[in-house]
């Protein structure tokens, strides 16, 4: 019920915020394209066609074909779908585990808090991509491990954010009222605190998704992530760079597609942050 009302309110606010609206439009377009786009394509994303090698963009092949004669647009759609699903799974896992750790840390305090937060600091100390790279080398290649690596990269972000917001909400009178009522701790965390810290976590999720797509593409680009012939934006760009002088459209158009998707998610995240921050909202309403 609460979420429904919040969403309705968000919809109203969205119309007045151009950044959020633009991000929302791009992201919706990308999502529709990767969900239903592939089924409209007459081409197969893995089937080679040696009669149509490295054809420049044309009506038949809007993004051209690659060195195996496969339609690039079809591969971009399938690849973006894979990239998106991997990122979504990774960030979701990171968000769930991170939020759980953060909230427990804030609510339990003492030893758990000290130990958990030092571990989070440890993960924070590494640059994100280096951490992802290191994790891939430890875990081994492949889709599942990319998801785990992305999750591990994002656990500290969500843990820290959940902990800080829980700390603030924990001392609110309505949480004390729930305690006085005799609600069990777990219930207070889930029913009283979580709905009130969800907004910033949701923004973090959207922005995180964008960067996770870059991580996935980067890992696949250097050959540690998704393995060819499975299409992924990173794999395709790695492939395209080898014959960039003969067929520049493969790398360029794939890269632009990636940029477009990330731009949409980032705009959406920025816009949502403005919308969900009551201080900024008041200013935009005036």
């Amino acid at each position: 019920m609460a979420t429904l009302a919040t969403l309705k309110g968000l919809g109203r606010e969205l119309r007045h915020n151009r950044v959020a609206l633009g991000g929302f439009a791009i992201t919706s377009f990308v999502l529709v394209a990767i969900v239903i786009g592939p089924s409209f394509s007459p081409y197969d994303p893995t089937l080679m066609d040696f009669t149509a090698i490295l054809q420049p963009p044309s009506w038949a092949h809007p993004f051209g074909t690659n060195s195996f004669g496969i339609d690039v647009l079809t591969r971009v759609l399938y690849g973006a779908r894979n990239s998106f699903m991997i990122s979504f799974a990774g960030v979701s896992l990171g968000a769930i585990v991170g939020t759980l750790i953060g909230m427990t840390s804030a609510y339990m305090g003492k030893l758990f808090d000290a130990v958990a937060m030092r571990l989070v600091d440890l993960l924070f100390a590494f640059p994100i991509f280096v951490l992802a790279l290191m994790l891939m080398l430890i875990l081994g290649f492949g889709v599942q491990n990319v998801i785990v690596a992305i999750a591990l990269v994002y656990i500290p972000n969500f843990a820290r954010m959940a902990r800080n917001t829980t700390m603030v909400v924990k001392s609110e009178p309505y949480v004390q009222a729930a305690q006085v009522m005799g609600q069990p701790r777990l219930r207070i965390m889930v029913r009283e605190i979580l709905p009130n810290i969800a907004a910033p976590l949701f923004v973090q999720f959207t922005v995180g998704l964008a960067f996770a797509i870059i991580i996935e593409a980067g890992l696949s680009f250097i050959g540690l992530g998704v393995q060819p012939p499975t299409p992924s934006l990173g794999v395709m760009m790695a492939d395209g760079k080898d014959y960039f002088h003969r067929g520049p459209w493969v790398l360029t158009l794939t890269g632009l597609a990636l940029m477009f998707a990330i731009l949409g998610l980032n705009l959406l995240g920025d816009g949502l942050r403005d919308l969900l921050d009551p201080r900024l909202r008041r200013r935009s309403a005036a």
């Binding site: 609460a2 919040t6 609110e172 009178p173 309505y174 004390q176 009222a177 729930a178 009283e192 709905p195 009130n196």
Partner: peptide, 11 residues
């Protein structure tokens, strides 16, 4: 509580 607004969960 003292502050009625914050003693009820806003959600």
């Amino acid at each position: 509580f003292q502050d009625p607004l914050s003693s009820l969960n806003p959600r």
